[in-house]
Nucleic acid binder design. Structure first.
Lengths: 336, 336
DNA sequence: CTGAAAGCGCTAACAT
DNA sequence: ATGTTAGCGCTTTCAG
């Protein structure tokens, strides 16, 4: 037992009267060890309170037993659901997941990502915030597989796992148009965000397919908070020709719009992208573009693990995860 | 450049024509290096695409630059908010947070926790699921500080950071009693969970303080899902003598109870422990026992960092984080 | 089946 | 201000 206070394999070997290598074999459950010796080693390890130093092990063996997940927002349930699913896959293979978050800051993303590389993670799942990812190119070439999630990456050849943003929005709008709605408001977050570009394109496509065009006067962008969406919706409802339907391009917009609609007791159809907690409790029947976030995380982790085993398996691919339209909320009857 | 494909400090040193140690100094930003040499080293490092191996560094130096967070449920926003706050503190000090989750399984918790110890984390934040934590005693004594979060730990001397569960419940009940309510339903999750024991005790204390006793006929336990709570609430509302108020001991119960109340359009006061997303959108005015989850995470991380610096600072303590009663939801006027 | 020696990539402790 | 040497704790040869 050294100054560090922590027993090492050398200490265990000395105590058990065997060589270092035998301890290593026993600790790692390798075969071809005499049961009697193994028992002695186990007993010594137990007695001394030995715990193998995983850092030293992977330094020497070059094995990588952690995955890194760089989220864009730690408190966003969407990303955390993904992380949970990815973590489960990793733990199922005896690995662990380090979760970090850029909090939507490109510089932070870069720092955290390179930091994880210095920790020699086996692979990275990244929700990209940075506009350019050439800084990762070298790492990828040196054998750290990277999967980009939810948003595409630029300046780098890597796997991407995205939602079918365009198809989901198109389906929602097609349904509203089929129901006869023409004056359909659209609430968007920052219009340069990838998902917004795609969802807006889906809206356009649905209108085009119906031989119609979007009424730009009721398209509102930069709805980054529910509050902004609520105010915009309130204004739309109070206008001379209020829309008969609204499409909210993310759940924050949906929540804000709903607050306005409920407060004004307006008769308006609502479809929104992204489900949210308590959507079933909303006092209106609404339609939601839903998807399986956990599936996204599972697929990302599995893709990573596969790339770790077989780096040059197939070309990097972009996978689009399908969405589906579901009912949420319920009509509330008048009180008293 | 070796077979591994990754350049090491030795490679950089050779390229720059300096010694290994000089490279180390430059890479780590240590003083007393001739600017000219430093520039040469930086250039070589850049050229070769050198990235310091953090594993090797901390193996040699014995420094610990990750913290471990063992959650009980990855998709629970409460724990993730805590993790986000703890992560921010860690990153602010150049460390990172490894997040794992026991998913409420004691054996998994043990495995993950010991695994993190083998990775030589600097400290651990644990939401305990296991009934006994003597298995961590040895690690704590060897210098890995552990902070238990949200629930107390047994069989071990360590810091605990808990919510004032009892006080929060007592305040909610005191308010209902002061408003004249007497027949107050109580919806509890599994009654042997620590938080439930405490919150229930708070309920009892409020009744006792008012010289009254809890009406056990309207106390329902084992409400683990919103569905269960909804069914229980529906039954209570349909009974001969329905309660005039209900206290829900966690947000899942609150959500389920609300569904039943809204569906039945019942006139009943509701107070619930834990805020939840969209609580402001609920079509009833309700009262919530709220608290600052982020503060819990920040305090946990800071406590850990302090213990890392000064292991024998003060005795392990139990901190109770205060709660407050807030208004949520809004009355919805009848439609049409 | 077991062991001795070498070394993963880095930093600490000492030179110089 | 720079370099040399040793060694963190483990796994990987390679020899018995």
């Amino acid at each position: 037992m050294r100054k560090s206070g922590r027993p090492t394999m050398v200490d265990v070997a000395a105590d058990a009267g065997v060589s270092l290598k035998t301890v290593s074999r026993v600790v790692n459950g390798q075969p071809h060890v005499d049961p009697a010796l193994a028992a002695r080693v186990t007993a010594s390890a137990e007695k001394l309170g030995f715990h193998r130093n995983a850092l030293a092990a992977s330094l020497r063996s070059g094995s990588r037993d952690t995955l890194g997940f760089v989220s864009a927002d730690l408190t966003n349930t969407f990303y955390m659901t993904i992380a949970a699913a990815a973590s489960a896959v990793a733990v199922g293979r005896g690995m662990q997941l380090i979760i970090a978050s850029s909090e939507e800051d490109a510089a932070t993303e870069r720092t955290l990502t390179l930091d994880l590389c210095q920790r020699r993670v086996g692979g990275l799942i990244v929700v990209p915030t940075a506009a350019d990812h050439t800084y990762l190119q070298a790492e990828v070439q040196r054998g750290t597989p990277v999967v980009f999630l939810d948003r595409p990456a630029r300046g780098i050849q890597a796997d991407e796992l995205l939602l079918d943003n365009r198809g989901g929005a198109r389906a929602a709008l097609a349904e509203l148009l089929a129901a006869g709605h023409r004056r359909i408001a659209v609430l968007l977050d920052k219009p340069d965000i990838f998902t917004m570009v795609e969802r807006r394109a889906g809206v356009e496509e649905a209108f085009a397919a119906a031989g119609l065009t979007v009424d730009e006067r009721v398209v509102v962008a930069d709805m980054h908070t529910p509050q902004a969406a609520r105010e915009a919706m309130t204004r739309l409802l109070a206008s001379a020709e209020p829309p008969t339907a609204v499409f909210c391009a993310n759940n924050r917009s949906t929540i804000g719009a709903l607050e306005a609609i409920v407060a004004a007791d307006a008769d308006i159809a609502l479809s929104g992208f992204d489900d949210f907690e308590l959507s079933r409790l909303v006092p209106r029947r609404i339609r939601i573009v839903d998807y399986d976030a956990g599936e996204l995380g599972r697929r990302a982790a599995e893709l990573l693990l596969q790339r770790m085993v077989d780096p040059d398996g197939v070309e990097p691919t972009t996978v689009l995860l399908p969405t589906r339209l579901v009912d949420r909320g319920r009509e509330v009857r008048p009180r008293g």
